[in-house]
Amino acid sequence: MDLSSINPLLLLASLMVASTPILLAALGELVVERAGVLNLGVEGMMITGAACGIIFSTLTGNAWLGFAGAALGGLMLSFLFAVLTQVLLSNQVATGLALTLFGLGLSALLGQSFADARPPAFPKLDIPILSDLPVLGPVLFRHDGMVYIGLLLVVAVWYFLSRTRAGLVLRAVGENHEAAHALGYRVVLIRFGAIMFGGACAGLGGAYISLVRVPQWTEGMTAGAGWIALAIVVFAGWKPLRLLLGAYLFGGVTVLQLNLQAAGLAIPVEYLSMSPYVATILVLVILAAGRAPGSLGKTFHASR
């Protein structure tokens, strides 16, 4: 065993990269669930985003446009979900599962001719002064833009949900949609907005895998990241800052276990492989989970 071969700074830096896809997707789902809607289609929207990201960035030669296209792809898929569940009042669980299956198939179709495509390189931000700081520089300030966008989004969502009137309305819709409706709020419209925000975030998360982390297109490449994101939302008790902790913990232990394997740690590999899941569940459970929004997953119609 040679633990000295693990460089903690590089480890922390790659933790941020490994966590970003889950963080983005989970953050979107958090807003959706706070509005009282359970969208199990995160995996489907992520993989569609991954495919759209490759397509848009290869065609335009610009990685940022790739992310924009990915957000659009995820958003369109979630719009479909919103129409089905909010207008046609279909069952949210079944529709969400169908959305995942649909997204997996759709992305395979879309991505078919892009299997050999190499997306344009996504530039890393090189912030003067900050990126040259000892220790903190390489860990915090030498990433690509999406890592910071993810972090900014966490703060923005936290601020929106807990400090703004609009956020309060969104939470009211999620807690008790009939009361919110009685107060004159447009429940369906607000939920449409939340669902589409969730779709766009999931799309961004998927594109981060296909444009930055891998970067190339392979069918089914999100490999369950969407389900992890869903679980993290629950374990984080529907709270944005705790969600950040959960995502970084999961990403961190994932990277750490690979490093420990490479360093030849004398723990059976099977335990290391399961460690990200165990660690994330344990920590978030110990922190005590929050309460689910009152109207989560329930169908709303103004006539009732």
């Binding site: 460089n7 030849g264 590999v269």
Partner: peptide, 27 residues
């Protein structure tokens, strides 16, 4: 030799992470 088992035949994200971990450790 530094060996990482990923328990899958194909998982691009995990393969990329494993490759990065190996490279960061000097491979």
């Amino acid at each position: 030799f530094k060996i990482i088992w990923i328990f899958e035949w194909l998982n691009p994200a995990k393969e990329a992470d494993a490759a990065k971990a190996l490279i960061e450790q000097g491979c």
